[in-house]
Computed example of a mutant assay.
Amino acid sequence: MSSAIPATRPSLAKDDFERLSHFRYRLRCFLRQSEDICRASGLTPLQYQLLLHLRGFAGREWATVGELAERLQAKHHGAVALIDRCEEAELVERRQGQGDRRRIEVHLLPKGARLAEHIAELHQPELHLLQDEFQLPGWPNP
């Protein structure tokens, strides 16, 4: 199987590359600042992302391991290991599903909820800058 680029592919203009480069730069700046905030708060960036996805899961206060793996773009076993570490730190707990006893629900514990709130608050200034710079639709104005 060849990885050659088709000759009929439309070429991108210089400003397309400049726009993509700037976006990737600003995204990396946000992520770097986020990493620093997480570490200063005593969490790894992945631990914070897990807490954030639990706190922000649409329609309910918990998520399954599979749902969290998808949100984290991680392999199932990687998500399980991360949940194990967060459970040991008393940030989350696993519970047997109410409707389906085979399903395992991951819930935030009070310590995890407090850390998620604190770290998310520290992200707001940079998030608002990105919102303004990229005019992201559907986000509330600061």
Results as ranks from 00 to 15, higher is better:
M1V: 08
A4H: 05
A4Q: 10
T8C: 15
R9K: 14
P10N: 11
S11N: 03
A13G: 07
K14S: 04
D15W: 04
D15H: 07
R19H: 04
H22I: 01
R24C: 03
R24P: 00
Y25S: 13
R26N: 07
R28Q: 11
Q33K: 14
D36F: 06
R39G: 02
S41K: 07
Q47A: 13
Q49A: 07
L50Q: 00
L51V: 01
H53C: 02
L54Y: 07
R60L: 03
W62M: 08
W62K: 13
A63P: 00
T64Q: 10
V65N: 13
V65M: 08
G66N: 14
E67R: 11
E67W: 11
E67P: 01
E70D: 12
L72A: 07
L72T: 07
L72P: 01
H76M: 10
G78W: 09
V80G: 08
L82V: 06
I83Q: 05
I83K: 06
C86H: 02
C86R: 00
L91N: 12
L91P: 09
V92M: 11
G97T: 01
Q98K: 11
R101L: 09
R102Q: 13
I104P: 00
I104K: 14
I104S: 05
H107L: 15
L108P: 10
L108C: 06
P110E: 02
K111Y: 02
K111F: 02
K111S: 08
G112M: 08
A113Q: 12
R114G: 01
L115V: 02
A116R: 00
A116F: 00
A120E: 12
H123G: 01
H123K: 05
H123M: 01
Q124A: 10
Q124L: 14
Q124I: 09
Q124V: 10
P125F: 07
D132K: 13
D132R: 13
P137D: 15
G138T: 07
G138H: 01
W139N: 05
P140H: 15
